[in-house]
C-alpha cells in the first residue's frame, strides 16, 4: 500500500478522532485511528492529535496525555519532519508536551464556548496553509473551555519575531480585534507553529469545517490537505 498514512492518536477521552479520520478521508488522505497504548505504526507519515477531553482534563487540559509514552514517539517523529497537528485538546496536548510554545488555559469568559469563529491566515507558506493566501479569512468552529492562549512576554516577542503565529482570531474583514477574540487569547492567537513548520497546533476544529454536509463552512479542509 502506498501513499500517506496519517495516525490519528486516540487517548482515553479523545472524542474527535473519528471525525478527524472522516474529514481526512474526505480530502483524500488515508488515515487511521491509533490507540495511544499501541504506539505509532511504522508507516506513519503524519500525525493528528485530535480533540476531546483526554483523561478528563485532570490537572490541566492535555497535561496527562502530554506525558503519555506515545508522545515521545510523536516528538521523535516531529523532529524527523513528520507533519504533526494538534487540534483543540490536541493543541493543549501539543503545548503541554513542548511541541509548540505557550499554553492554552481557561477562557476569559470562564465558560465552555462552542461557536463559529473567523481566523486570519497569518502565513501561507506552511504545509497547513498552502491552500490559502496570507490574510485570507476562514470560518472554523471552536468548542473549548480552555482555549485562551497564554505566553510570557519575551516568549511572545520571540513567537512574533520568528513568525510562528499561524492563525489569529479576526472579524469578517480580517481585522484582529478584541471583539473578535472569543476567549481572551494573547494577541488573538488561535494557532501556532512549533520549531518546524511541519508542527502546528490550533484550538479551532478544521475537521468540523470540512465535510460539505456538516454545516456552514468547509474552510477547514485546506488545513487537512497538508497531509495529501
Amino acid at each position: 500500500m502506498g501513499g500517506v498514512t496519517v495516525a490519528v492518536v486516540q487517548f482515553g477521552g479523545s472524542n474527535c478522532d473519528r471525525d478527524a479520520v472522516r474529514a481526512l478521508e474526505h480530502v483524500g488522505v488515508d488515515a487511521e485511528r491509533v490507540w495511544h497504548g499501541d504506539g505509532l505504526p511504522a508507516d506513519t507519515d503524519g500525525i493528528v492529535l485530535p480533540g476531546g477531553f483526554s483523561y478528563g482534563d485532570y490537572l490541566r487540559a492535555g497535561a496527562m496525555a502530554a506525558r503519555d509514552p506515545i508522545m515521545d514517539e510523536v516528538r521523535a517523529a516531529a523532529d524527523e519532519g513528520v507533519p504533526v497537528i494538534g487540534i483543540c485538546n490536541g493543541a493543549q496536548i501539543g503545548s503541554e508536551s513542548g511541541l509548540t510554545p505557550g499554553a492554552f488555559t481557561t477562557n476569559a469568559s470562564a465558560r465552555f464556548q462552542c461557536e463559529p469563529v473567523r481566523l486570519r491566515v497569518e502565513r501561507a507558506d506552511t504545509p497547513w496553509t498552502a491552500a490559502y493566501d496570507e490574510g485570507d479569512v476562514i470560518e472554523v468552529p471552536i468548542a473549548h473551555g480552555e482555549g485562551r492562549f497564554e505566553i510570557g512576554e519575551s516568549a511572545h516577542a520571540d513567537l512574533v519575531a520568528d513568525d510562528r503565529v499561524l492563525f489569529r482570531y479576526c472579524d469578517a474583514e480580517g481585522n484582529v480585534t478584541d471583539a473578535a477574540n472569543p476567549n481572551g487569547s494573547t494577541d488573538n492567537v488561535a494557532g501556532v507553529l512549533g520549531e518546524r513548520e511541519t508542527v502546528a497546533v490550533l484550538m479551532p476544529h478544521p475537521e468540523r469545517a470540512t465535510l460539505p454536509d456538516l454545516g456552514r463552512s468547509t474552510d477547514g479542509a485546506g488545513i487537512l490537505t497538508a497531509f495529501a
Binding site: L59, R60, A63, R67, S95, E96, P101, G102, A103, T105, E150, I151, G152, A155
Partner: peptide, 9 residues
C-alpha cells in the same frame, strides 16, 4: 517542573 505546574503560566 515536569508535571504539577506549567512553567508558562
Amino acid at each position: 517542573e515536569r508535571l504539577l505546574a506549567n512553567p508558562t503560566i
